[in-house]
C-alpha cells in the first residue's frame, strides 16, 4: 500500500525514466531527520553500501537485511552541538564525516569503525567558522573557513584507520568560498563557487589559485555541484536554490555552464527549470508561495531537489528536463533528496526519519 501511494508521477512526454521504491527505513527515535547519505562499509571481507542517517544529536549507520529491510548497526551520540550535515568521503570504506554547528558549521568530526580494537569511534577533524566542506577522493576533505582577517582553504587527509595526516593549504581567493566540486577526470583540479558569484579553480598538488571566472549576477547564489573538463573547456553544474517556477525561463534551478579557463569567458550549455504546473506551498491567508527549490544533489547527469511544495523533482541535466516528480507522501513532505554512492539510487527523506530508497 505504501509503495503504491509513493509511486512517483511521471510528467507527460518525457523519457520513461522513473523512480521505483526499493526499500524503506525509519528511525524510531522520534528526532527530526537532518541529513541522509550512503557509505561503503567493509565487514567480514565484503564491501556493501550502508545508509547513514543524521538527526540533531546523533548519527546512525544502517545495514541491509533480508527482504529489503534495514537494521541499525550503530548510533554515534554527538553531544550538545547539533549535526547539520553528513559529509561523505568518496570511494572510502568505514569512514564518514559530519558537520556540526548552529546556523553555520563550527566543527567537522570523523565517524569511523576501528578494526584495531573492534569499536566505533569519533574524532575531531577541524573547528572554526567553516563556510563550506566537501569530501574528496583518496580519503581527503576540503574546507573553507574564515577568521576576522583571512580565509583559509585547507585539505585534510586521513589514513585508512582514520588518523589525520598533514594538512595542505590552498591559496584563498578574496571572496568567501561557499561550495566545492572536484573536476572529474583531472585528479589535481578543484573548483569552488564564491559569495560574489565567481568560479575559482585550484591546482590541488601545488595549492595555486589558477583562475577566477565570474558567473554573472543574473544568477545569484550559484552553488557548484559537479565539474568536468572536456575539449579544453571546463563544464560546471551550478544550482540556484532561489529559482522560481514563475521565472522558469530566466531563472533555472540547475545550469550546465562551459567555461574557457584560458579566457574566463563562458556560455550556458543546458538549463533545467522547475517543473511547470507544480504549484507552490499554500500558506495561511490563502497566499501561495511559488515553487522554488530548497536543497538538491547532483550525481553524473542527474539532479534531484526538494521543492517548497514538499515534492522531490528529478532532472536529466543533459536533456535539461524534469524526468520524475515524487509528490509528498501520505506521512508528509519530503525534506531530503540525496543520490546514493552507487549509480541510480535516490534517497528521499522525511522529517520524521523515514528514508525511502528509489531506483532511478
Amino acid at each position: 500500500n505504501v509503495a503504491e501511494q509513493l509511486t512517483p508521477v511521471l510528467l507527460d512526454g518525457l523519457r520513461e525514466e522513473s523512480l521505483q521504491l526499493v526499500s524503506k527505513l525509519k528511525d524510531s527515535s522520534g528526532s527530526c531527520a537532518v541529513d541522509v547519505s550512503t557509505v561503503w562499509w567493509e565487514a567480514a571481507g565484503s564491501r556493501e553500501l550502508r545508509v547513514v542517517t543524521a538527526c540533531e544529536s546523533s548519527v546512525s549507520l544502517w545495514k541491509p537485511l533480508a527482504s529489503d529491510r534495514w537494521g541499525k548497526v550503530y548510533t554515534w551520540q554527538l553531544g550538545e552541538i547539533p549535526v547539520i550535515q553528513i559529509v561523505p568521503l568518496l570511494d572510502t570504506c568505514n569512514l564518514v564525516c559530519i558537520a556540526l554547528g548552529d546556523l553555520e558549521i563550527g566543527e567537522i568530526r570523523l565517524l569511523l569503525y576501528s578494526s584495531e580494537n573492534d569499536s566505533f569511534k569519533q574524532s575531531p577533524v577541524k573547528t572554526g567558522n567553516i563556510k563550506a566542506v566537501l569530501g574528496l577522493k583518496d580519503r581527503r576533505l576540503v574546507s573553507s573557513s574564515r577568521t576576522v582577517q583571512e580565509q583559509q582553504v585547507e585539505i585534510v587527509s586521513f589514513s585508512e584507520t582514520g588518523r589525520s595526516k598533514d594538512g595542505q593549504t590552498l591559496m584563498p581567493p578574496e571572496e568567501t568560498v561557499l561550495a566545492f566540486a572536484e573536476v572529474e577526470g583531472m585528479s589535481d583540479a578543484l573548483v569552488g563557487t564564491t559569495a560574489v558569484n565567481s568560479i575559482v579553480v585550484w591546482n590541488l598538488k601545488t595549492g595555486q589559485l589558477l583562475k577566477k571566472m565570474h558567473v554573472g549576477y543574473s544568477y545569484p547564489a550559484s552553488i557548484c555541484h559537479r565539474a568536468y573538463s572536456d575539449s579544453g573547456l571546463l563544464f560546471v553544474v551550478l544550482s540556484h536554490p532561489h529559482a522560481k517556477e514563475s521565472e522558469s525561463c530566466g531563472n533555472p534551478a540547475f545550469r550546465v555552464i562551459a567555461f574557457n579557463p584560458k579566457t574566463a569567458r563562458s556560455t550556458g550549455v543546458m538549463f533545467s527549470s522547475l517543473p511547470p504546473g507544480h504549484a507552490g506551498r499554500q500558506v495561511p491567508g490563502g497566499l501561495c508561495v511559488p515553487a522554488s527549490y530548497l536543497e538538491g544533489d547532483v550525481k553524473d547527469a542527474s539532479a534531484a531537489a526538494v521543492l517548497t511544495s514538499g515534492a522531490i523533482a528529478v532532472w536529466d541535466l543533459l536533456l535539461g528536463q524534469c524526468t520524475a516528480l515524487l509528490p509528498p507522501g501520505p506521512a508528509g513532505s519530503w525534506v531530503l533528496a540525496r543520490w546514493a554512492a552507487t549509480s541510480a539510487c535516490l534517497l528521499a527523506g522525511q522529517r520524521d526519519g523515514t528514508v525511502c530508497l528509489y531506483r532511478y
Binding site: M171, M186, D188, A189, V201, N203, T206, G207, Q208, L209, L210, K211, S229, S231, G232, L233, L234, A258, N260, P261, K262, T263, R265, S266, T267, V269
Partner: peptide, 23 residues
C-alpha cells in the same frame, strides 16, 4: 560553443595556467 564566443581554447589549459599562476 565556438572559439569566437569563448576565445582561444587550449586542451592543456590546466598545465598552462599552473605554469603562469603565482605559487
Amino acid at each position: 560553443c565556438s572559439e569566437s564566443d569563448l576565445g582561444p581554447i587550449s586542451l592543456n589549459w590546466f598545465e598552462e595556467l599552473s605554469a603562469e599562476a603565482p605559487s
